[in-house]
Design a protein around this nucleic acid. Sequence first.
DNA 1: AGGAGAATGCAAATCATTTGCATCTGGCAC
DNA 2: GTGCCAGATGCAAATGATTTGCATTCTCCT
Lengths: 147, 147
Amino acid sequence: MNEIDRRTEKLTSALRDAGVRITRQRAALLSVLAEAEDHPEAIELQRRAEGVVPGISLSTVYRTLTELESQGVILRHQFAGTPARFEHTETTHHDHMIDVDTGEVVEFANDRIERLQAEIAEAMGYEIVHHRLELYVRRKSSTRTAE
Amino acid sequence: MNEIDRRTEKLTSALRDAGVRITRQRAALLSVLAEAEDHPEAIELQRRAEGVVPGISLSTVYRTLTELESQGVILRHQFAGTPARFEHTETTHHDHMIDVDTGEVVEFANDRIERLQAEIAEAMGYEIVHHRLELYVRRKSSTRTAE
DNA sequence: AGGAGAATGCAAATCATTTGCATCTGGCAC
DNA sequence: GTGCCAGATGCAAATGATTTGCATTCTCCT
């Protein structure tokens, strides 16, 4: 917790230096995002932020998320058929595996895939701005849990 | 053209056998999809289908696309920040590269990436239901065409 | 040809997200 | 510290893509 608070504080002043006003609602969202170990969507972030700033509006949440995204502080993921999910940029790059039965999101990273992607783009005269790799998966040989 | 008509006809009777009624609007969409060499979105498909069935409604287009998708006849792609785009399933599997400046979609395929994906999922106890790999790219070393 | 049930068109509903606008509030200037 | 003002907030209404309810119209089976 202390660790998270320290990072959040550093981030906060960095943002202020970048000309981003740190309002109560933004501070709340920053800490909520810093604590999140999952990939929450906007509404869920609002719910969590309400614990700190009751009455925070959904539009503010969206506006703040957009701002933080363009500041490179968070990432926005648009998985198939669901609202966007957000994640802070403290972690190193990784891709996602989405369990189609539960909706659970698992992270993974693989250098070889990254390199192959760059090679492919390169070979066709492009450079990668960003990419999206999502594996929609199902637990193997489960004895029929859902359907 | 003859080639496309033949395939469309075969597809049509296969669908009928599967219990899918072939209405004028569905037939129109099937041929429009068969002829498409790009990745059109629903509205564009409606526009093209109007040439054959004037007055075809957007809801019918959507309903038909959903039906054809579940019949495995077409694929629905949801690229970042744009309406869904559709593509018939005649071609072999491939992924997409999206030029962020022009919106142009380029297809590519790479066996090694496919294999790596399967391995990764496997190693974590999952099997892949489907995946999404999109490279958002920019032309290399272009002397500033857009911004 | 006749009819049952499915498909269509239209308008209205949804869902996630954005925006207009009047009101509030950070954070620098003094 | 106090005041100011550009930028941020909350609310409600707008947007954009897609879906849905319902009355009407077709498809295709017999």
